[in-house]
Design a protein around this nucleic acid. Structure first.
Lengths: 116, 116
DNA sequence: CGAGATCGTTACGCAAGCGTTTCGATCGTG
DNA sequence: CACGATCGAAACGCTTGCGTAACGATCTCG
């Protein structure tokens, strides 16, 4: 069963969640960082820099920098691939999982509160 | 009737829309800018810099700068309030409405394609 | 074994956003 | 009419992210 919304509900949902996200989390991930984080946690591993860059349609340094900053926040981790030591495998963390769990809760809450 | 979602659907929706937004729009609004834009278009006017700052929980220069950059993109407009010339009233534009219409379409489409 | 391809990272110069502080313009009120 | 309050914007120094172009490390394969 898919999620059905009217245009007003769709934008209202985005509005309410964005607003609460801005107010609640001071660390303010960019849209790109958010897309990367969600991709890492929702798509089956393994994840590499190159594959993420291709998926997002951006250059590799963008991914490297995003992993730098999100790694500093403890949201993701990097491990060298021992099978092919050129690769870096991106790992999930407990903190990252909790961060996305909070986001998911906000989306569900706000969705529930939307008018018809 | 509210919008009901499972945790997996909520994050899946955010993931799919963020990903498509990154790939489609090169101009990459920040989360704050997006929240401001949605607020201007979804909440009844008038909107002022000060009120927006209070709503978002940020300082006034943040709003000024966001309006600068989104104004340069044609997504919003600024008009001096003739009743109280200290105020600036933020106006919607056709381009901004179309931008959000595209976003709304993406949200609806991705919501529809979500698995159970 | 060695030349070329591929991996992620780093270096570089630049643009954009931040928070704090200050500013000019305008209003309200005594 | 003048003084204090309030509005949004500008100035300042700083941090972060960008795209392009390189780089060292590692793998592949003739």
């Amino acid at each position: 069963m898919a999620v059905e919304m009217t245009p007003s509900q769709a934008l209202g949902l985005w509005h309410a969640v964005s607003l609460e996200q801005v107010r609640a989390e001071s660390n303010d991930l960019s849209l790109r960082q958010m897309a990367i984080l969600l991709h890492i946690y929702l798509v089956p591993p393994p994840h590499t820099v190159r594959a993420l860059a291709a998926t997002l349609g951006v250059t590799k340094p963008v991914i490297t920098r995003a992993l730098d900053s999100m790694g500093a926040l403890g949201l993701v981790d990097r491990v060298r691939d021992e099978k092919d030591r050129r690769n870096v495998v991106i790992k999930r963390t407990l903190k990252g999982a909790l961060y996305l769990e909070r986001l998911g809760d906000r989306i569900i809450d706000r969705g529930r509160q939307l008018p018809v």
